[in-house]
Write a protein that binds this DNA or RNA. Structure first.
Lengths: 344, 344
DNA sequence: TTGTACGCGTTATCAG
DNA sequence: CTGATAACGCGTACAA
């Protein structure tokens, strides 16, 4: 009794005594189909409960209207903003997103990339995992000229677009801001310098020190995964230093580490910003909740997601000028809050 | 020069002088293929750079190994945890996720559901938008017996599984906790009671009041979208009340509203918890950063995402007992922190 | 264990 | 403007 076959364009065709080809065209509102016929087709489609079969279409047309998104982790405020921005832009243009996370594991990234390729995504958006060294796993995309857009954690590749912020400049400015506040011993909580973002933030920080005749030594560069725990460990490290060696400011490559470092120092009785001033990165919600509020860099995930997808889709539609720059740098302005404002 | 055709099983077949059927079987490691042949096929696949075409396969096998995920918003801590949990479980079982957000708009939810259906997802995971009234838009799924799993913001539907926490119980307990602390005038910051989660939290709160002979009046129920702004507005509302009418505690249906309400009250000079005690919901990162730390309900998005996907996949694999309960309630324990601990 | 032959639902091509 | 037909790449009865 319960008929379980798909309703296809043939059913519509039979119903209207026309050919499937015309139905196919009509459903896409092709102007080469009689207006009246188009209307009839649309009505019959509703009446019969027709639902187009996307992958039968994909098989024929060789385009899926699906974009692959491959990120290190899904559960961070920044990344969820990126995804929200991407979904928005994609939806607006009739594209869908298929999303996977590498969990910072190069091997998983490789597998996910293969899956995305097998699903024949029309384009790939990727932010590299913590320990990805090369991008050989993206070769299939390059070979078949499937556009790849890197964002945030990028990799130089001359045929792909990269969407980044000026990490170097932001780090330079925020470090300079700390210096302007009178800080002289500024510690940096950084990430793996293998990744562009952390290297550039570190470089910007170091250059700012240099330009202001402040010495730098490796002990002031605390490398970690920038997690809550890492922030607390950085605090422990700081508290173990003699007063003379203790930093009078900390610039962290993300807000999480900064905030949990602040909390631990506060618990230990240090005053912020008087004893140690703080600056972070990302403008995560916690930066507005911690007391004193954290000075940080307003890194908009939403804008980055939007830009990445829009760029990719323009490329797919052949709108973008291929000879235009293939690296887009988004603004990311410093937000000055109390945690970095030394008194007197 | 640059050959741009797909490498297909036919290419492998020709290369090895065998039939495409054997290649097809061999690639899936079918035991009905000679081991040696299988090895040769695998090698040739690599050599020729073969990449299986998922949707050609899907067209034939009528299964996509793709799950649709439809959520109100992507950019919240809770939801990104859910997605992370889902992606993990899905990946583990060889499934992919295609994700869309309704932006709390029933109309968009409808469109997205249609897209998911057209992409022939093997199953759908959905948390309803703020203003979704009915689930007619899911009929195509029900008709074709494509399993739908509701989570968090659910809808009663006898053929679908719902994954929820005990919102009523958690709200009851946390309200009771406030009462035990000596609070007598407890205000509730709630969401739209059309949605089960907000209705149940409201009901639990009210029942706790009743069981302790505390009166309730509608003025103590502040309904909003529970955003940052809404939290601040609730604070304004509270500050406008005369001292006699002012609540001595606030139970908010999420942490965001609670925290921004706290901040505004603190700025106005009120002491927390002495003047107004606080409790929230979700265990969002900001609840651990605000001072005093916010008492809240530990609602694990990760667990919910994992459970939802695992349940769905078990169903798809026919493992689950269809006669078992179709509603799964996850634990969500209260976390007591300083914001609710009245002194003396 | 392997091969033959067909069909999944759609779209492109060409002819009318 | 419409129709007939082939083809996209793969999986699977059925036969050998």
């Amino acid at each position: 009794m319960a008929e379980n076959r798909e309703v296809t364009i043939y059913d519509i065709a039979k119903h209207l005594n026309i050919s499937a080809a015309t139905v196919s065209r009509g459903l896409k509102n092709s102007p080469s189909v009689n207006k009246n016929t188009r209307k009839k087709i649309a009505e019959a489609a509703v009446e019969l409960g027709y639902q187009s079969n996307t992958f039968a279409s994909s098989l024929r047309s060789k385009s899926t209207h699906t974009l692959g998104v491959l990120v290190p982790r899904l559960n961070s405020y920044f990344m969820s903003s990126v995804l929200a921005g991407m979904e928005n832009a994609a939806n607006r243009h009739g594209y869908n997103l298929i999303i996977a996370q590498s969990l910072e594991d190069a091997e998983k990234e490789k597998l996910n990339a293969a899956t995305m390729f097998n699903k024949r995504v029309d384009g790939l958006l990727i932010s590299l995992s913590y320990d990805t060294q090369n991008i050989n796993h993206l070769e299939p995309f390059f070979k078949r000229k499937i556009p790849v857009v890197f964002f945030d954690r990028v990799h130089p590749h001359n045929a792909s677009t990269s969407i980044v912020i000026n990490n170097y400049g932001a780090a330079y400015n925020i470090t300079k801001h700390l210096i302007d506040q009178g800080c002289r011993r500024i510690m940096h909580l950084g990430g793996n310098v293998l990744r562009n973002v952390y290297k550039e933030r570190f470089d910007g920080y170091r250059q700012a020190l240099k330009d202001h005749d402040l010495s730098f030594n490796e002990k002031m560069h605390f490398i970690s995964t920038l997690s809550e725990k890492a922030g607390a460990e950085a605090a422990k490290h700081i508290l173990n230093l003699t007063a003379a060696k203790r930093p009078d400011a900390v610039f962290s490559a993300n807000d999480t580490a900064a905030v949990y470092c602040m909390i631990a120092l506060k618990t230990a009785g240090l005053r912020i910003p008087e004893d140690v001033a703080f600056a972070g990165f990302n403008n995560d919600p916690i930066s507005k909740v911690i007391e004193p509020n954290l000075t940080t860099v307003d890194y908009s995930g939403d804008t980055m997601g939007n830009t990445a997808v829009t760029n990719l889709i323009n490329h797919l539609k052949g709108i973008s000028n291929l000879y235009s720059t293939n690296s887009i740098t988004l603004r990311a302005d410093m937000i000055i809050r109390a945690s970095s404002l030394k008194k007197g």
